[in-house]
Design a protein around this nucleic acid. Structure first.
Lengths: 128, 128
DNA sequence: CTTGACCTTCCAGTTTGTGGAAGGTCCATA
DNA sequence: TATGGACCTTCCACAAACTGGAAGGTCAAG
């Protein structure tokens, strides 16, 4: 399978596959005589794993760790769970921050007429 | 006021003030004979505005627009409100995405023993 | 043999700063 | 007056995670 087919099959864009290879997240692909990359089913599976882990918000370095655990048949599931819980904590902090922004903005917006007049509690609120 | 005092007074780090100047978000500061930047109270107020708008999650380009509206005494408050509502929409989308990640991760984590055994529904879930 | 869809590498840009090096300035104290 | 420490200056590099585009090679069908 060449990179275009691998991209379609894994959900990771061709450009991104090359990028992942360049940063060492995935192993360098085998090449045909003419230099085209070739991907086996195992490599497609790996790419799909990466894609899913990324879509769960794990940073690329976290995905690298997850890949190591995934391939380590003697891993302890507690190690994986610890990573997941820590990541959930990160997500919770982000949600809380966004929620706080949202609350403030909504509060300010509710006080703003939103008409042709210049009077604007939103700007006043930001100015403090 | 030199840049260090401006930083303390506005909450924007000195390095970041220089950066904002370099990208044109704020006007170039006046300089003393020896080349030090000097900030007036108005500039401190502007920096504080920028700091607050950023902390509400507005991107730098959005802050630039807000600054324009802030300084435009003939603005319509509806323009400001529209920006705020759009930004709230962005935030809502981010929150929803994070919430979805969180739900999936928590669901997988709940199925994982988290002990010494290698069996791990989290990795299985990511692998698909 | 040509054409179009692939593939290759490499460089640049995105966003929002942060860290650090090399060197000039200012003020207080010895 | 000299000197030391805390400022300030510019400039370059790095962070995360890609994405776009240019220039050029390859493959398969008609």
């Amino acid at each position: 399978m060449n990179i275009g087919a691998a991209a379609k099959s894994s959900g990771v864009p061709a450009k991104t596959i090359r990028y992942y290879e360049s940063i060492g997240l995935i192993a360098p692909a085998h090449r045909t005589e003419s230099g085209y990359r070739e991907f086996s089913q195992i490599e497609i599976d790996t790419l799909r794993f990466v894609q899913r882990a990324r879509s769960l918000g794990f940073p690329v370095k976290g995905v690298a760790l997850l890949l190591d655990l995934w391939r380590d048949r003697s891993r302890a599931s507690s190690d994986v769970k610890a990573m997941a819980m820590e990541h959930i904590g990160d997500i919770d902090r982000k949600i809380a921050e966004l929620q706080s922004m949202r609350d403030t903005l909504l509060h300010l917006s509710e006080q703003c007429h939103g008409d042709d007049r210049p009077d604007c509690p939103i700007l006043e609120g930001i100015a403090g």
